[in-house]
Amino acid sequence: MTSQDLTLLSFKIGEDIFAVDALQVNHILEVPSTITAVPNTPVFMLGIINLHGNIVPVVDMRILMGNEKTINGADTSIIVINPNAEQESRLGLLVDMVKEVIETNQSELTETVTDGKKGLIDTFEGTLCINEEFIHVIDIKNIMEVIEK
């Protein structure tokens, strides 16, 4: 089979490259001027934003991935994913930089080797190797679980 059955959107957090299933991505946004902080929530929960009249919570992927540097730069963006195709489960992921859309094959994924990082995310869909760069494909279900915990 030569058909490309997997479309990914890759992004950078620090020096690492991650990706999510592009089909679940709704929007890519610049960081808005205000993110309304919701009191009494975990640090990674940055707050809520107004996305075309709807409320979308935003999490800081840098914190979820255990990265210490959390300063917003010119490339910092929010990837809004919509895992269950319902308003309720929309979620913004704040990342350092959105990279590109990758068309690939499920079979290209290899098992992700985690090196005992301090991040909160423990499972990945797999890792893709393109031009000697490793792209770790994020398991959105796992992210949701972590946030809801």
């Binding site: 009191p39 009494n40 929530t41 929960m45 009249g53 409320i55 919570p57 489960s89 979620l91 809801e148």
Partner: peptide, 19 residues
């Protein structure tokens, strides 16, 4: 009143948000 979505359900005192 807009729902906060599933991720903020734990935030009991806040039941939603308004734009």
């Amino acid at each position: 009143v807009k729902p906060l979505g599933r991720y903020l359900k734990k935030q009991e005192i806040i039941s939603g948000a308004s734009i």
